[in-house]
Design a binder for these strands. Structure first.
Length: 258
DNA sequence: ATGACGGTGTGGCACCGA
């Protein structure tokens, strides 16, 4: 089973690249973030033509998420965190493979802008709500994957210049504590289950030739539940799409389960 | 290093992302 996540930074711009990537790397489930499309504009026909069922949840200008799956489409679909009032479209979840199947949660964590800001406070509240909800999901779905753009670099080795980024957004102690709390629910960072090349990032700033200089952060993640941990065969980041002519600033992250 | 890039929506720029 193959699963992937990609922050596409506008699906209107990146649809051809997503279809191209899926053609080269077929997935059983893929989640997208930052589609930036209202629901009436979602290109579901293009995904259906490529063999994918699509579920989507978007809004104007910002945010927006989608869940692409092979087959009949996911069960028990959820949009955003139950009980958490949110005007922003950031979460989509569904179960693939029928009853007792795999619970797939795609999430676009808030950026947070700057520690101490209103947006940072929203990020913290949002992460608390997510954690509490994922805990409940795990209780009913032991086979669970939480993946997406976390906007958190969990450790210094996930940052090209940890001194420069110390205490900055994505790297604050509060954000990292929240990431650890997710792991403590019984989830594992699939990327770190394997030997990985040093300086592995999933995002590079558009500015300052950051990609060419490999100055980036690893902020896109795939967390697998303890029940699935033994089934993880591979996890990696595909940098190639970042070399496209009009790339997203993020690269897709993928995992293979037996 | 955060002005630098890129997307959106608006309108001749501002806002936001990370």
């Amino acid at each position: 089973m193959r699963l992937a996540t990609w922050n596409v930074n506008s699906l209107a711009v990146r649809l051809p690249q997503v279809l191209e990537w899926l053609a080269a790397h077929p997935q059983d489930a893929m989640v997208l973030q930052e589609t930036k499309l209202t629901d009436d504009k979602f290109p579901h026909a293009e995904f259906e033509a490529a063999g994918y069922d699509a579920k989507w949840f978007g809004q104007r200008t910002y945010n927006g998420v989608a869940l692409l799956t092979r087959g009949d489409g996911p069960a028990d679909l959820l949009r955003n965190i139950p009980g958490f009032e949110d005007e922003q479209a950031r979460v989509i979840a569904g179960t693939v493979g029928g009853a007792g199947g795999l619970r797939v949660i795609g999430a676009y964590f808030p950026n947070g802008q700057e520690p101490g800001s209103d947006k940072f406070a929203y990020k913290l509240r949002w992460m608390e709500a997510l954690r509490d909800w994922v805990r409940a999901e795990l209780a009913t779905h032991p086979n669970l994957v939480l993946m997406g753009d976390f906007n958190i670099a969990p450790e210094d080795r996930d940052v090209y210049d940890p001194m420069l980024w110390a205490g900055q957004i994505h790297c604050t102690p509060e954000e990292r504590a929240h990431f650890r709390q997710l792991l403590e629910l019984g989830l594992a960072d699939a990327f770190r289950l394997f030997e990985q090349p040093p300086k592995s990032w999933s995002w590079w700033d558009y500015r300052n030739l950051a990609f060419r200089k490999n100055q980036g952060l690893r902020i896109d993640h795939i967390l697998v539940s303890d029940a699935l941990k033994g089934q993880v065969r591979a996890c990696g980041i595909d940098k190639l799409p970042r070399k496209n002519e009009r790339p997203s600033d993020h690269a897709p992250v993928f995992v293979e389960l037996t």
